[in-house]
């Protein structure tokens, strides 16, 4: 099924939900409005057989397509990447919104896998939680909350999963400095 056909189906089921669609290299990809995410996911699960949520990934587009494809230094750390020689060949159009949350869905059962990519663009990093649709999203969302700082509204247990519970900041964000981390466990000496 092409992205256009799928977008038409989803748009018919949940009007106003599809913001954009594209046939990516690997699978059709839909950009969904955040407020309709649960309805679209439920529709895809119940009517389109997307019973398997492969992964939830957060992407931070801060600085995407700009000359320095690296990181932005701050007082907390140094920027070891500002070499100047890593510029991109052509300037990529940066997305208007900073964060994207990407869901990869698949069908397990009779017939082909029929993978679909859903994408929710969000400026402040807030999307509704899909734990009620696919229970497996529990840890996926906690991981993205922890490392990327995406807030999943309605998640029943949104705590840090990977980093220590008192960690400051979200390491996978592009403005999180590399190098110069404070020394851990100094009080234990």
């Amino acid at each position: 099924m092409t992205a256009e056909q799928l977008a038409a189906l989803v748009e018919q089921a949940v009007p106003g939900s599809v913001q954009a669609h594209a046939d990516d290299l690997d699978m059709p990809s839909l950009t969904i409005a955040g407020e309709h995410l649960i309805a679209v996911c439920t529709y895809l699960r119940d009517q389109q057989g997307k019973n398997f949520l492969s992964a939830v990934s957060g992407v931070d587009y801060l600085g995407y397509g700009e000359e320095v494809a690296g990181y932005f230094g701050s007082e907390r750390g140094r920027d070891i990447n500002r070499t100047g020689s890593w510029g991109t060949p052509e300037t990529v159009t940066p997305p208007a919104t900073r964060f994207a949350v990407v869901y990869h869905l698949a069908h397990i059962g009779e017939g082909p896998t029929d993978r679909v990519r859903l994408q929710v663009l969000t400026e402040e990093g807030r999307v509704p939680s899909v734990v009620s649709v696919w229970p497996t999203a529990d840890w996926h969302e906690r991981e993205q909350y922890d490392l990327m700082g995406i807030r999943f509204d309605g998640h029943p247990n949104l705590r840090r999963l990977i980093m220590p519970s008192d960690w400051d900041g979200h390491p996978l964000r592009k403005d999180y400095p590399i190098g110069g981390e404070p020394v851990q466990f100094t009080d234990a000496v």
Binding site: M27, S54, G65, W86, T88, H104
Partner: peptide, 25 residues
């Protein structure tokens, strides 16, 4: 600049790699 989700059957199950590129190295 593109994005891809590539999966293999690892001994533990579906091992997927989601990669977003920006035109850089």
């Amino acid at each position: 600049a593109n994005q891809i989700y590539y999966t293999v059957e690892s001994p533990r199950g579906e091992f997927g790699c989601f990669l977003v590129s920006d035109g850089g190295p």
